[in-house]
Design a protein around this nucleic acid. Structure first.
Ligand SMILES: [Mn+2]
Ligand SMILES: [Mn+2]
Ligand SMILES: [Mn+2]
Ligand SMILES: [Mn+2]
Lengths: 231, 231
DNA sequence: CTTTTGAATTAGACGTGTCTAATTCCCCCC
DNA sequence: GGGGGGAATTAGACACGTCTAATTCAAAAG
């Protein structure tokens, strides 16, 4: 059995690998988990002893296949729980992260199965993050790009909102921006801000750090069929 | 904040007080929680430091008002969770105890409120155990008696089943005995067994240790109205 | 090929919850 | 009013996850 802490380290390392490039440095993990570097060194030694990570001293770590499975298991729990809390208990999408962060370590496999069934095997959570399958295959990151990287014009659909700040999430939802929202970039201001226009006609201005967190793609209706070339 | 362990000690002490008579001995707690007596001594010292229990060395402990509130909070979580798991996730009543035993320590007050609302503020759990109110007033034990104490004849309604063994609970449910079941005592055998007859006509024989765990009362239809004297 | 310097590791400590072994205490019985 | 015997506590230890302070390392700069 793994401790709650071990699970959190594995989840953090896995996520960091997905974003930046492996191996992941001690200090990076320390910042992510809000602990000191010596703490990371000692925890990482334990994970390496159990073959959950590959470690090269002074270099950093990468997850092994086994470690990755553990991370995906916890991520599946987390995202299923977030979906469950919003769908079945009426939570706001801004509140679910904290609750899921705790519960993800304490639900049984039975609970996981039953929640997934009750939700009809969902594939994305309320923030648009993909939910790993029961088989725990690595989720391929949705082909989406940051809103901040787009020029003016062109219809876009919100795919994911990679933000955890409850106040910001609440603001976005109130403004009408959640996964599935269709919008166009109206103006890219030179002061670190973009303004988008929603289908409702409403205009919403967003500072860069928010626009960075919003991932968009071409709207479903305008996308080529899966597996069919665009030619 | 209290640790998961402290919560479990408090819950155990509270329950033991309700059954036997206070103060509760070190060894009794040790057996209940499956730890050694020195472990209990040291934990109980910590609880006394925090004014959660009253302690008299070499005598035993009793919960303070504050300790009782903590115990009731955890018991409320436990029983709400059991009810939720059976009602909303389709768990069998034999499976819910274990899952609730863990989750009771990890859900937020928000979760508690939302689950209670989703269930329409239930008053008893799947085993017939009363659920403490949100205000955490001590639950007065339902006026029910053990099936094993009844003579032959007389209609009775199952109020609670105080058993945790999954195999036994499954057997009872399969036999048609759950809270709400109406039955009559058919035969009290001198070999430590009672046979009851259900409304369906089925007869079910139960060894004493099971009959001890089944608490019964007069059926609803035959009970005097609340607050109205029987004269 | 050195030196520098910032990151990583080692050393040593602490709080929590648990254990076993040793000791002490309470209380019942003679 | 002692003795005994069983329960409770004390003593000392360990695993875990964390910290601060000291040391060592590796990689960039000179
Ligand atoms: Mn977590
Ligand atoms: Mn999410
Ligand atoms: Mn528990
Ligand atoms: Mn119950």
């Amino acid at each position: 059995m793994l401790s709650e802490q071990m699970e959190d380290y594995l989840k953090a390392i896995y996520r960091l690998e997905r974003d930046g490039e492996p191996p992941i440095a001690t200090s990076t993990i320390a910042e992510t988990l809000d602990v000191t570097p010596p703490t990371v060194t000692s925890m990482v030694e334990k994970l390496a002893d159990r073959d959950l990570v590959e470690r090269e001293k002074y270099k950093g770590v990468t997850t092994t296949a086994e470690g990755e499975t553990v991370a995906l298991e916890i991520i599946r729990h987390h995202r299923l729980l977030e979906t469950f809390l919003t769908e079945k208990l009426g939570y706001d999408w801004a509140e679910v992260h904290e609750e899921a962060e705790v519960l993800e370590h304490h639900i049984s496999e039975e609970f996981e199965r039953r929640v997934a069934a009750a939700l009809d095997e969902p594939e994305v959570d309320p923030h648009g993050d993909p939910i790993p399958s029961e088989a725990l295959d690595p989720v391929d990151d949705v082909s989406a790009t940051a809103l901040s990287e787009h020029e003016e014009g062109g219809r876009l659909e919100v795919a994911r909102v990679r933000d955890r700040d409850p106040a910001e999430l609440t603001y976005l939802a109130d403004a009408g921006i959640t996964p599935g929202t269709v919008l166009t970039v109206d103006e890219v201001a030179p002061i670190g801000m973009v303004t988008v226009k929603l289908e409702s006609g409403a205009e919403v201005s967003l500072p860069d750090h928010i626009a960075d967190a919003i991932q968009v793609r071409r709207p479903e209706s305008e996308r080529p069929e899966d597996g069919v070339s665009e030619a």
